[in-house]
Amino acid sequence: MDSTDRHVLLTFTNPVIGREARYHQWHEVHLHEVVSCDGVVSGQRYRMSPDADVLTPQWMRTHADRADLPMPFEFMAVYEIEGDLAAAIEAISTKDDYSIRPGDSLDRDAVASWAFTQTGAQIGSASPGEVDHLGISLANPTKGNLEWFEHWYTIHYREVMATPGFLTGRRYWAAANTLTPQWAIDHGEIGTNGMPFQHLVVYEVGSPYAEAKPALEDQRKNFTVFPDGAMDYDEIIAWRYTPFGDRAE
């Protein structure tokens, strides 16, 4: 299958404080029921990694209601989709027989759901049990610099993937926004179709972050190309999530 027929849907959520048990009961069932929809081939839940060394735009920090979090979203679900992305999202959105609802356990003001289409082939391979954490990098090219941004990132993520412990790397471009928090829309710099971020890279890392971070810092010495103004530094995200629960297929 061509990479342009491969997609991911990232759904970010938070439980209401004090309703975590109900939230997890719902989310675990919901994950499997979403995967049952046509076109959705897998789903995996993740929880924000415990270390606070993350990169979050200031406007997202300002709107984070959870003062104990270094970023707005504690939980993320990643759904892999193959084939017609629009049809798969329609199937998820219109499914009328979900067996359980979140009720008042879901913080509905802090839900974001963004879809991306893969560009190029995946680098590396990994089985679910090998992955210690997932690194996601979200960024926007600056106006008029898309070509250089693409050239730089094509090289950059391959050089990142040379870091010991990095198992897989995949690049994506924004495809569809299904839900963006109002506070992100109010930020006033939302891109195509209400998407805050146009470019996504997902890294699966097999070593603990305490080992992966110094290895990546050492690898930076070998980077050969730099963005040189092609990336908006006020819009960069670097978040890490740890697998939470079993993968649904």
Rank of each mutant, 00 (worst) to 15 (best):
M1Y: 10
S3Q: 12
L9G: 04
L10N: 00
T11E: 03
T11C: 06
T13D: 03
T13R: 00
P15Y: 01
P15D: 00
I17H: 12
R19C: 00
Y23A: 04
H24D: 07
Q25Y: 10
H27K: 13
V29P: 00
H32S: 15
E33W: 01
V34N: 00
C37H: 00
V40C: 00
G43P: 01
Q44H: 02
R45E: 02
A52T: 13
L55S: 08
Q58Y: 09
Q58C: 10
H63F: 10
A64D: 12
D65N: 13
D68E: 13
P70D: 03
F73H: 08
F73K: 05
E74Q: 13
F75E: 11
F75T: 05
E80L: 08
A87Q: 14
A88T: 06
E90G: 11
E90M: 09
S93V: 09
K95F: 09
D96Y: 12
D107M: 02
R108G: 10
V111T: 03
S113C: 12
S113T: 15
W114F: 12
T119G: 06
G120P: 01
A121S: 13
Q122R: 14
Q122H: 08
I123G: 03
G129Y: 06
I136R: 02
I136F: 05
S137R: 09
L138R: 03
N140P: 07
T142E: 09
L146M: 07
H151N: 10
H151A: 10
W152I: 01
Y153K: 00
Y153E: 03
T154C: 09
T154E: 13
I155F: 09
H156K: 06
Y157C: 04
T163G: 05
P164L: 07
P164A: 04
F166K: 00
L167A: 01
G169Y: 02
G169V: 04
R171K: 08
Y172S: 00
W173H: 15
A175L: 03
A176H: 13
A176L: 12
N177R: 13
T178A: 07
L179S: 15
T180L: 06
A184P: 07
H187R: 12
M195A: 14
M195K: 09
F197S: 01
G206M: 05
P208E: 07
E211N: 13
K213M: 15
K213E: 11
A215S: 04
A215G: 04
A215I: 03
Q219D: 07
F223R: 15
P227H: 04
G229N: 11
M231V: 15
Y233F: 14
D234H: 12
D234K: 13
E235F: 13
I236H: 07
R240Q: 11
R240S: 05
Y241L: 06
T242A: 08
P243H: 05
F244G: 04
R247W: 07
